[in-house]
Each structure stands twice: as C-alpha cells, then as structure tokens.
C-alpha cells in the first residue's frame, strides 16, 4: 500500500495522526493530496458545516469552544478548523485560537486544527474546503470553521458552511463598519457575545435595525457562475429565514443552548424550504469555477515564458497594448 493509501485508510478508521498528516499534505498541496481527496470524497457529505466569523476579538474562539462543549453534551463529535491570516511579510503566522479551546483537551470526540490562510485571496485558506472534507470523511458530525471577518473571507465561509454565525460584541464601535463589510448579508444567525458587558442591548438594537433595512440579500434567482438562466433548474427557493439575534456570554457558556437550537432550526429550515439542495448546487458551481480558474491560469502560465508575460505587462504600462487585447494575445500564444 502506498503512503497516501495508508493515510486515507487511517482517516477512515478514525486514526487521528493519519488525519493530521493528511491535512498537512492538503495544506502543502502535496502532489499526492488530490488522489487522497478523491478517495475520501465518497465518504463525505455527512457532517453539518457551521461557519463562525466576525471582527477580531469579538470572542469567536470562545464561542466555538462553548458551542463544541454544548454539541458534545448532545453526544455529537466536533471537528474544528480555525483560520488565521498569514503574515504578508514573512509568510509565517501566529495561530492563537487554541488558547480559548483548552476546555476541549482530552476529548477524543473533538479534533482542532489551526490553519494559516497562506495568503489566499479569499481570506479563507484555499485548502480550507478540502480540510473540512477530510474532517467530514473522518466522521465528525459537525465541523466548525472559525475565520476573522475581513471582507471576502466571509463570503467564502458562507459558501463552505451550511449555517453561518456572525459574532459581534458591544463596545467595538464598529457596528456600521461591519455592515459596510457586508458581513450581515451572510449571517444566518447573529450573536452578540460578551453580553455581560455594558452596551449589549445597544448592539442588539443596532443589528436589528440594520437587518430590518433589508441588508440580507440571499436572493433567489442567482444561479452562480457556470450555468446561465436557461440551463439552471427552475424557480429557486426564496430565502425567508428570519435571522435570530442571540446574546451569549461565551466565557460562562451562557446562551449556548439557544445558539445550538438556532443552528438546528436553521438546518431544518434549509431542508424543508429546498434551500439546502439549492445551496449545495451553488457551492459545487462556485467551487468548480474557482478551481477551473486556478487550474487554467496555472496551465497557461506553465505554457508561456515568464519573459512573454513580463513583456505584455511592460507594453500595457507603456500604453501600447490594452489589457483586453493582452489577454487575447496570451491566450492565443502569439
């Protein structure tokens, strides 16, 4: 048996070290990772995937820790992926989310993995989706993904997760900022954490007011990037989910039963409304489009000499060639 087959079998047998090593190979984009993912794929699709995002320091990791404990008390196993940014200067990272998750130590029903996004444009590590699949194949009932909300990464998380929780906290003074960043649009559940602090009610009110302005635009009718209107299945379901705003004190594990209950209700809503299937289809399309784009770009750059690409850039800078014509030129290989 090859090394990668051994890892795949280990993951399916619940061997935690095999799972950890396979995740590393996925993160490193090792040459044998695609074969492993292909072998694992038939075993995925069982885990319920929940995203937790929000501004830095709102208590996301503490909420993840508390939520995982609540889920464990319901006898569900939990995989956790905590994503932090890679330093653009060194390519390194300090990943500190585990500090808040020490309660979960020693529980074999929990597996925590810290990830650096390795400069992926989306904010969410390019490999996160595959790492989540590995946890799914390993049999975890729920996978929690923590990311810092910073623009595009929330959108990415919403694509990977079935239910997205946005965590806010009083006293950040950035309620308006968060809304500008589009963060409310992707929330299925809003959590005002640190409800023990003054100002929690104000934060709840500000969030409710903004929700009522209709910032939530999970629109029907958008079929994604690959199929046009005619090819797509008819009449996408309308998302009429009423986004709950919950207060928690994650450090004291208060409000967590309500949060777990809201996730359960959202899950039920998705499947009853037909949105679950529709979003699954959208996710597949989005992922295919992203992967195609990456793969095609990589292939093209493989075929063209760096000098040719550099030459095109210089000619655009000198206003001798427009970017549109440059793309056609590169594609045609002239």
């Amino acid at each position: 048996m090859s090394r990668i087959e051994t890892l795949v079998n280990g993951v399916l047998d619940g061997d935690r070290r095999a799972l950890a090593r396979l995740i590393t190979r996925i993160e490193n984009r090792a040459p044998d990772a695609p074969a492993a993912l292909a072998a694992l794929f038939p075993h995925t699709g069982r885990a319920y995937i929940v995203g937790i995002t929000g501004a830095p320091g709102t208590g996301k990791s503490t909420v993840v820790n508390a939520l995982a404990r609540t889920l464990r008390a319901q006898d569900r196993t939990v995989g956790i992926v905590a994503v932090d940014p890679t330093s653009p200067f060194s390519g390194g990272a300090v990943l500190g989310d585990r500090i808040r998750m020490t309660d979960l130590a020693g529980d074999r029903g929990v597996f925590i993995r810290s990830m650096a996004n390795r400069g992926s444009l989306g904010g969410l590590a390019a490999a996160t989706g595959d790492v989540v699949r590995a946890l799914d194949a390993a049999g975890f009932d729920v996978v929690l993904i923590e990311t810092v909300g910073a623009g595009q990464s929330e959108v990415d998380i919403a694509r990977t997760a079935y239910t997205t929780i946005v965590v806010d906290a009083p006293g950040l003074g950035d309620d308006v900022q968060a809304i500008k960043a589009g963060i409310l649009e992707i929330a299925d559940i809003l959590v005002v954490n640190k409800a023990d602090r003054p100002g929690a009610e104000n934060t709840v009110r500000a969030l409710r007011a903004t929700l009522e302005l209709g910032h939530r635009l999970r629109s029907a009718g958008h079929h994604g990037p690959l199929l046009d209107q005619d090819d797509a299945p008819p009449e996408p379901a309308l998302d009429l989910w009423d986004v709950p705003i919950l207060k928690t004190v994650a450090t004291e594990r208060s409000g967590l039963d309500e949060l777990a209950g809201a996730i359960e209700r959202h899950r039920a809503y998705l499947s009853e409304s037909g949105l679950y299937e529709e979003r699954a289809r959208q996710r597949v399309q989005a992922e295919l489009a992203t992967r195609l784009r990456e793969e095609l770009l990589a292939r093209l750059l493989d075929e063209r000499s760096p000098a040719a690409v550099a030459g095109v850039i210089e000619r655009i800078l000198a206003r001798q060639l427009d970017p549109g014509s440059a793309v056609r030129e590169l594609l045609n290989g002239t």
């Binding site: 890679t86 330093s87 060194s90 300090v94 585990r98 500090i99 020693g106 810290s114």
Partner: peptide, 21 residues
Amino acid sequence: RALRDAGMEVIYTGLRQTPEM
C-alpha cells in the same frame, strides 16, 4: 513572533498546559 517572522507557522497554546494537552 520571531518564528513567524522567519516564515514558520506557530500554534500558540497559552499558559498552564499539561504534558497531555
């Protein structure tokens, strides 16, 4: 931080860790 600046990924687990943890 020094290891991060050298390009490494550092998982920081904080205080009071037992050998098991």
